[in-house]
Each structure stands twice: as structure tokens, then as C-alpha cells.
Amino acid sequence: MFAYAIRRLLVAVPTLFVIITLAFFLMRLAPGGPFDSDRVLPPAIEKNIMAHYNLDLPLWQQYLKYLGGLVQGDFGPSFRVRDFSVAELIMSGFPASLQIGGTAILLAVMIGVSLGAFAALRQNSLTDYSVMGVAMVGIAVPNFVMAPLLTLVLGVYLSWLPVAGWGGGAFANKVLPIVALALPQIAYISRLTRGSMVEVLNANFVRTARAKGLREQLVVVRHALKGALLPVVSYLGPATAAVITGSVVIETIFDIPGIGRYFIQGALSRDYTLVMGVMIFYAVLIMVLNLVVDLLYAVLDPKVRYT
């Protein structure tokens, strides 16, 4: 397994290279440039700016320059934000995203798995339907509705929690964003858990275990749940990466200094280097988390072997 992990990490390097190359050229195909705005720049000034950012070079030279910088750990300057480099922006934004996203995903796994298992054990009963129904609210009410609703009720009307802002990372400021971020995840995870749990509960080895007279609790926890978690774990890899790299909607509504906004803002304003930087960061996270998921598979299911 260790060798497998090493091999995967080695494969990651060319994968990353492919991603960078594809993204670099794809992005330049999109219409509009980083300096298009309602103020047209006089030709002389535009020329100065293009030269300043090397945008006047042929594309392949820009690409090589960018790669050269990357090798030295330089993500380049942002095209829009002047006073911070891309690396500084990511480093200052990631802790906030990680705190909010990490907590949300943990919360979602705990609540989601419990709800899902609970519902599965009472399959097709009223309890099952109501638990799943409540969980579905997290999906059926999109977060751009849920988040303003939460702030309106808990922040403006009841004044229990701050409406928005980071507050230097105060706990009160994190509650609502975490809840808003966790709700849909709870829904997804509980549904996945319930689905595969129902399946596993009907599987032969669980039936046998039950027939052998093992205690119900033990059957559920040791055998059923473990098997049922496979699809959940599959889902968690990319979901975790997506959640801890921040959600643009949540960050905008709650004014959280995460990196989720950089991607969309960067893409909209054609801030090529910022988008590339966030994307590379995200790609590395995805690959690491997917590796973790694959290794977890082997732990959860002895039939999955890596050689």
C-alpha cells in the first residue's frame, strides 16, 4: 500500500503538468482580457501595461515564463490585485476557508452518517421518510437562499449572531457560514449513507451475522456501517476539496476572507495568474484527497487490494 501511495504521488506530477498546460491555454481562449473594463485604456497606456505583465509576448513564451516561475515556486503577480502576490492571497485566504469548510464537512459527516444510518434501519417507515425529508431541505433550498435567510432571521431579527464579517476569526462569526455550508452536505451524505446502508443490511454477510445472533448494535456498527461507508468515502474526496477551498456564495454573503471568491472573481476579471494559482492549489488538494479516499477503501473493504 505504501508503494502504491508513492507511485500515485509520482504520477501526480505529470497529471499536474497536464492540468496546468490545459488550463493555461483554455483560459486564453475565453473572450476578453484582464484589462477590459468600462474605462478604455489609451493605446500608449495599454501598451505599457501589456509590457509590464509580459502579455505582449507570444503565448508560448508567456507559457514558458509561467512554467519557469512555477518551478521556482513563484505563482506570479495577480493581474488585478497589485499589493499582494498570488501566493500571498492564497496563503492568507486558505486558513479561513479551511476552518469554515473543514468544520462544515466534519459536522456534515457526523450528522449525515448518523441520520442516514438511523433512517436505513427504519427503512420505509414514517421515521425514515421524515428524517430524509428534513435532510432534503438542505438540497432543496439552495444556499443562496438559505444563507440570506439565516442571516435575516438569526442576525437581523433576533440579533443572536453577527450578520457577516470575519471578526478576526471569532467563533460567533463562523457559526452561520458553517451551518449554511454544512446543510447541503448533510443532505448528500445522509442520502448516500442511507442508500448504501439499506443495501448492506440486506447483504448476505449481514444477514448471516444476524442469524448468528450477534447483537444488533454490533451488526450495525461493525459490519453494516463499515460497508455502507464506501460510496460516502468516494463522495467525500472531491466534496472535501470543494468545501475547504471555499464557496463563493457563502464567502460573498458572509464576507469571509477565503479563497473561494478568488476563483470566480479571477475568472470573471480574467485574472489569469490568480485563477491558475487557485486552480493548481485546488488540483493538488483534489489529488491528495482522492488518494486518501482510495487508501481508505482498502481499509474499509478488505476485498479491495492495491498491489
Partner: peptide, 13 residues
């Protein structure tokens, strides 16, 4: 993995 990391929005655009 590659597809996951590619900016979806650029893809659509």
C-alpha cells in the same frame, strides 16, 4: 483528476 481540477466555468464559456 484532471477534469476535476479544470476550471469548470472556462469549460462552459
Amino acid at each position: 483528476d484532471v477534469m476535476y481540477s479544470l476550471p469548470f466555468m472556462f469549460f462552459v464559456i
